[in-house]
Amino acid sequence: MVAGLGLRRSGRRNAFFFAGAAAIVLWSAGPFLWQLSTSFQLDRALVSPTPSLIPHPFILQHYLNIFSVKHFQFYVLNSCIVAAATTLLCLGLGAAAAYALARLKLRRRFGLLGLILSVSMFPQIAIVGPLYLLASSLGLLDTYLVLVIIYLALGLPLVIWVLFGYFQTIPEELDEAARIDGAGPLRILLLVIVPLSVPCLVTTGLIAFIAAWNEFMFALAMTSTIAHQTVPVGIANFTNLYYVPWGDIAAASVVVTLPLVLLVLFFQRRIIEGLTQGAVKE
């Protein structure tokens, strides 16, 4: 850990760092808090000359609106189904691939890993046209399946990368022992590696879930009705003819962001470890 310069602490220095840390928290959380406050305010209060952070009066009208008028629950349900299916498949396929890359005798495995990672770097707009034509010819447009298939491929590289890093930290003697007992690769993966990797699988799954939950462009292109459109498409379409319903939008934003924020706050240390492992492993 870093010692050194940080050890000389004077009062002024402490105050400086405290102010800086407070500024970071305010900058990161402030806009969302304003969104939270907006969601409980009357439209009339929102256009008043002096905005107030504390809702007065405190109303739930916007939340009622988005569910009863805009049927937001359908978008949420669609997103839950798509993101959950994507997450499970990502973890299953990703664990198998990461295990093969991390443990089994495979030539050029770092080349393979690099190839898999490079797939996630090209502009996604480059594949949306041909995929649309393909999905259209297979009759897959406006289905859950097409979104899950696409999100699986978009999520796999990061999942494989994070799991690969984690699997390498598991002592090799453990699967050696299982192999001597006569277990095959699949059994070792399921009975030795997976049980040891539950914390990592949870975090990686969360990262994959958030990515699928937040994706917008493919959902916009591939789905066309409320039967399969996901939350980002629903929110993007939240406009009235004559005015922008900022209160309703804020309520919808809170509904789809708050669960993620709470999960992230809970798992923050592991998420940061998972996401930054590539950059710091020198």
Partner: peptide, 11 residues
């Protein structure tokens, strides 16, 4: 600091 990261870009 993870709040902005987790929030959907559309939001």
């Amino acid at each position: 600091m993870l709040i902005p990261w987790a929030m959907p870009t559309v939001v």
